[in-house]
Amino acid sequence: MNTFRTILFTLTSLFAFAANSVLCRLALSTEQVDPANFTAIRLLSAAITLALIVAVKNSTNLSKVSQFGSHSGAFYLFIYAAGFSYAYVSLGTATGALILFACVQFTMLLKGWLAGVKMTRQEYVGIILSLLGFLYFIYPELEKPSFIGCILMGLAGVAWAMYSLIGARSTQPLLDTASNFIRLLPIVLITLVWSYFTTDLQMSLQGWLYTIGSGALASGVGYAVWYVVLPHLKPSIAAVSQLSVPIWAALGGVLLVAEPIDLHLALSASVILGGIMLVILAKNKR
Results as ranks from 00 to 15, higher is better:
3 T>R: 08
3 T>A: 05
3 T>H: 11
4 F>T: 12
6 T>V: 14
8 L>S: 11
9 F>C: 09
13 S>T: 05
14 L>G: 03
15 F>C: 11
21 S>L: 10
27 A>Q: 08
28 L>S: 10
29 S>I: 13
31 E>A: 15
33 V>S: 01
35 P>Y: 15
41 I>S: 04
42 R>C: 12
44 L>Q: 11
50 L>F: 06
50 L>W: 05
57 K>H: 13
60 T>A: 15
62 L>G: 04
64 K>I: 08
64 K>G: 09
66 S>L: 13
67 Q>V: 08
71 H>E: 14
72 S>A: 12
73 G>E: 09
73 G>H: 11
74 A>T: 07
76 Y>P: 06
77 L>T: 06
80 Y>C: 02
83 G>A: 03
85 S>R: 02
87 A>K: 03
89 V>F: 13
96 G>V: 02
96 G>N: 07
97 A>G: 10
106 F>W: 05
107 T>W: 07
109 L>V: 13
110 L>R: 10
114 L>A: 12
115 A>E: 13
121 R>Q: 14
121 R>K: 13
127 I>C: 03
127 I>P: 00
128 I>N: 04
129 L>R: 04
130 S>P: 01
133 G>M: 09
133 G>I: 10
136 Y>V: 09
137 F>K: 00
143 E>A: 12
145 P>V: 11
146 S>M: 08
150 C>F: 08
152 L>I: 07
153 M>L: 14
158 V>L: 10
160 W>I: 07
161 A>S: 14
161 A>P: 11
166 I>R: 01
166 I>M: 04
168 A>R: 12
180 N>R: 02
181 F>T: 02
189 L>C: 13
193 V>K: 00
195 S>F: 08
199 T>Q: 10
203 M>R: 02
205 L>E: 06
209 L>Q: 11
211 T>E: 10
214 S>H: 01
214 S>G: 07
218 A>Y: 07
220 G>H: 01
221 V>K: 04
222 G>D: 09
224 A>N: 06
224 A>L: 01
225 V>H: 04
226 W>K: 00
228 V>H: 04
232 H>M: 01
233 L>Y: 02
235 P>V: 09
236 S>N: 08
242 Q>E: 02
244 S>M: 14
247 I>R: 01
250 A>R: 07
250 A>H: 08
252 G>W: 07
257 V>T: 10
260 P>V: 12
267 L>D: 02
268 S>K: 05
272 I>S: 06
273 L>R: 01
278 L>Q: 00
280 I>V: 15
280 I>S: 05
281 L>W: 10
284 N>V: 03
285 K>R: 15
